[in-house]
Write a protein that binds this DNA or RNA. Structure first.
Lengths: 362, 362
DNA sequence: CTGAAAGCGCTTACAG
DNA sequence: CTGAAAGCGCTTACAG
């Protein structure tokens, strides 16, 4: 492998000069620059990023933790994140908890070993908030609250729920089935924010005197389970006249409905939550509450940038002397994120959702 | 940041000893080990992987280059690759060419800068074979031939084509429409292997005297384009009685057919190529030619392992004395593999496909 | 503007 | 079994 030393020797200059040329930094005379560039050319020199990484203690890589990108929702989220990160010069490490044997802990470990600069956490976790706040590395949560210091981003699920309930009420639904994750996550203190749309729908339907049952879908990992779920719904609730669930659930339910000769939307309405491509592949164009993935990705990336910047400031490269504004410098471990993250820690950044009527509602 | 030096000082031993303990290598007395472990514990020491990376000139990261994981085919491929790599201790860097502004060159560049150990190439490229063979870093191609030295893996598309043609002929199809990529890729010398199934179908249908038209789908990136394509098919070929295309194309075509009141499979058969989850979301269970993603991922990972091993053998750490000449000959244990990879360079590793009848064929 | 030096945090021969 | 030393390939103060 040809390194800077080789280039320096060939060009008859010092390694530092080569470095300056490569990084286009500092002052280098045109003469020197030309010699170095010629040498780089002839030797076919390519800088080794690993050395830079070590020096800077930075990889410019962000880990995206999702259950699996086999599911359209996480594929969509991940795709938008990768695009957003790429535009900011960051690489995306795909961290799947369902596909890998290990859970998120391994990825957190990698974060701590500086194999990545930060983590977007968008998968289920059993860890308690103190686990997350004790990591002291850049983490941003999606659709969940991980602890006071960890910024969060999520869609406006309450509005999403309100939109759905409104549609169902206005169209005269009488028996709604909501499909979603394990009901055990629906505690008042839940950290999982998606449940908010279910809770909102349930509340509003109850107030309107409309029957509403909740059915647990299988794991996000596994579509086949969804198919069984769809069949079970019709068996269990023969008079169901509206089904609400993720794109995938909705698509599968629609397929099952048509198989049973049920008229959609005449006698059964279907509303899909998410609005990924999956909703466009179904038997009919699904009515959808669409999450704004580009905006979500941008917000997540913004938060990540801030986290990374904040993390780099205090512990400047062997230069603890540089105080870039006493404000930020004050951030000593614990008291650190109190100020501006309190808001985001508790409420999170909220991204609006959109209602897109399709062929499956009246 | 607490480093090995801190641990060594606290434990009253040398840095080398700490390193041995951390890596569980060499001989360390129980006494020393205990002291070091205690120190690591109390200081909360976490090794910094970046330093190892530099020393080993290795990141244990593989880049997976795909157009976009918004498309179920590439999401599926990528998910299986990540799982397979994870089981081999490798991380997956998501390299999307459609989502990033730059094409694959940037990723190749990163490969050369040692930001990753290898690349799985599964996206379109305009580069000529000599570009790829001149990179001299581990690369494995999926569904395409990139040059003599680059191993390739692909499904048995010819059999896939034969299965489809057989089904269409046996069920009495009279006018088939094939949907696929730009026809310009269909040269005899094409490096893009998926076209083989189209060519096989066309050949067999022609021999059987069945009409067959080819329609170019929009870019894989964009489902909306597929919808326009589907509509156009019915306008242009009112008597079409069979449509063949990717899962996404098939699903969209089915939706359009039902919208037009066309009886599927009675007067229109639909066959989907790929067999991703997308095929299960459509209006009916699609008849599918399924690619074996787990096997594809395993084969790609095998090839990648070999490439990486081969790349590491000759150029041992700072041991430039070795001649590159006898490289391949040195493969002692895997002499079996060396025979294989000669083949794979030219023909590629071929993975069988499966026919899964659904509700959209007779 | 340029070069010699120290160092990023770890690993591995190599002497003891 | 243990430690001092050299080095992975690059960057950045710091003298000239």
């Amino acid at each position: 492998m040809v390194g800077m030393r080789d280039v320096a020797k060939q060009a008859g200059v010092s390694v530092s000069t080569v470095s300056l040329v490569v990084n286009n930094a500092g002052y280098v005379s045109d003469d020197m620059r030309a010699k170095v560039e010629a040498a780089m050319q002839s030797l076919n020199y390519i800088p080794n990023e690993l050395a830079r990484n070590l020096y800077r203690n930075r990889t410019n890589t962000i880990g995206v933790i999702v259950p699996t990108i086999l599911h359209p929702f996480f594929a969509t989220l991940t795709a938008h994140l990768q695009r957003e990160f790429a535009s900011r010069g960051l690489k995306t490490l795909l961290c799947s908890t369902a596909d890998a044997a290990t859970g998120e802990s391994e990825y957190v470990n990698m974060l701590q070993r500086h194999m990545m600069d930060g983590i977007i956490m968008a998968a289920h976790t059993e860890h308690q908030p103190d686990y997350w706040t004790s990591i002291h590395r850049p983490i941003v949560a999606f659709d969940r609250i991980l602890g006071a210091g960890v910024p969060a981003v999520h869609s406006d699920h309450e509005t999403g729920g309100r939109i759905i309930a409104r549609q169902l009420i206005d169209s005269g639904a009488r028996h709604v089935v909501l499909v979603g994750g394990p009901r055990s996550q629906f505690t008042k203190s839940t950290t999982f924010l998606t449940v908010r749309y279910h809770l909102t729908v349930e509340q509003m339907l109850a107030d309107a005197g409309i029957a509403c049952d909740y059915v647990e879908a299988g794991s996000v990992t596994d579509v086949v389970a969804h198919e069984a779920t769809a069949a079970a719904i019709f068996e269990r609730y023969p008079d169901v006249d509206a089904i609400v669930g993720s794109d995938v659930v909705a698509a599968v339910a629609l397929q099952e409905a048509e198989r049973r000769g049920i008229d959609v939307p005449g006698s059964l309405q279907i509303i899909a939550y998410d609005g990924t491509m999956a909703a466009e592949l179904a038997g009919k164009r699904l009515t959808v509450v669409r999450q704004d993935f580009p905006a979500i990705a941008a917000a997540l990336a913004d938060q990540m940038d801030q986290q990374i910047e904040a993390a780099n400031k205090p512990a400047g490269k062997s230069a603890s002397k540089q105080s870039d504004g006493a404000v930020q410098a004050e951030r000593t471990e614990d008291s650190a994120d109190s100020a501006d993250s309190v808001d985001s820690g508790q409420l999170g950044i909220v991204i609006p959702v959109t209602f897109v009527p399709g062929e499956t509602t009246r």
